[in-house]
């Protein structure tokens, strides 16, 4: 009964001769939480950039809900139902917190110049809906991002709250899959434990499917159904957390090969 949402076939990308990703195969089923791990420079962020359309693969295919995403612009990918966050938080720092989540609903709304100039009833209704949905996704994080905060610029937020706002912004695009790029980076253990629970709630209460890149193994262990390990642009292991963490290839990728002979 599992419903395959996203399938990635033989995906490769090269940057001027350098293979950032090589023959990558990957899939996500509906309702799964999949973690992508791997040492620095393994191509994890490139992988996300490729799914979200910011980088075009050299070869291979990305199939989402039965249709290829290749050649789509990032906004079209988002409209198709894949939202993402960024590793180095990239909020619209000078827009208010509410505006950040309002603007993310752009591809789900239709009103144009005419509606706003003549203040049509449908325009006002849509604006109200955008606002309500925005407040709803912000409310997911408790009281941190709502109330008086709504009209403050995103730049005054603390680092952890910026990460939360980025997730809220991704949620606001009404996606099917959310790609989280190191969601707990820079958070203290208590905060990251709370966020780990929230990631679980993203699936159970909101019905999102989640792919996350993470370095924090506690988070990976607690939330993932499945873990995929990348190294040098290739998948080197795949499976449950326990399988993967005991795989010799993975240990080698992280710790290096024991020196057998002197050169």
């Amino acid at each position: 009964m599992t419903n395959r949402l996203l399938t990635i076939k033989n995906l490769s990308v090269t940057f001027g001769g350098l293979h950032a990703l090589r023959d990558l195969n990957f899939h996500v089923d509906e309702g799964e939480i999949v973690s992508v791990i791997g040492p620095n420079g393994a191509g994890k962020t490139t992988f996300f950039n490729m799914i979200s359309g910011m980088v075009t693969p050299t070869s291979g295919d990305i199939i989402f809900k039965g249709e290829s995403l290749l050649g789509l612009d990032p906004n079209q990918v988002t409209a198709a139902g894949i939202a993402r966050t960024f590793q180095n938080v990239r909020l619209f720092a000078n827009m208010t917190i509410l505006e950040n989540v309002m603007v993310a609903q752009h591809c789900r709304t239709r009103q144009g110049i005419g509606g706003s100039l003549f203040q049509t009833r449908s325009f006002k209704r849509e604006e109200r809906e955008i606002r309500e949905h925005g407040e709803k996704v912000l409310g997911f994080f408790g009281s941190r991002l709502v109330g008086y905060r709504l009209d403050q610029p995103a730049s005054v937020l603390s680092y952890a709250n910026r990460r939360r706002l980025e997730i809220a912004r991704a949620m606001a695009t009404k996606p099917t899959i959310i790609l989280l790029d190191e969601p707990v980076a820079g958070m203290n253990p208590k905060e990251s434990a709370i966020l780990t629970d929230l990631i679980g709630e993203l699936r159970s209460d909101w019905g999102f499917t989640i792919v996350l890149i993470e370095h924090d193994m506690n988070v990976v262990r607690d939330v993932s159904d499945r873990v995929v390990v990348l190294d040098h642009g290739e998948t080197i292991a795949q499976g449950s957390y326990d399988d993967v963490s005991n795989s010799p290839e993975v240990i080698e990728a992280y710790l290096g090969r024991p020196v057998k002979e002197t050169a």
């Binding site: 906004n75 827009m95 603007v103 009103q111 144009g112 110049i113 509606g115 706003s116």
Partner: peptide, 28 residues
């Protein structure tokens, strides 16, 4: 009016960071 509309917010987002605006679903 435009500044406070869907389009106006999209413009602001583009001014702040075009590639993120695009990734958030705005047809830049």
């Amino acid at each position: 009016r435009l500044e406070r509309s869907r389009l106006g917010r999209a413009w602001m987002a583009i001014r702040e960071d075009e590639s993120v605006a695009e990734a958030m679903g705005i047809d830049t």
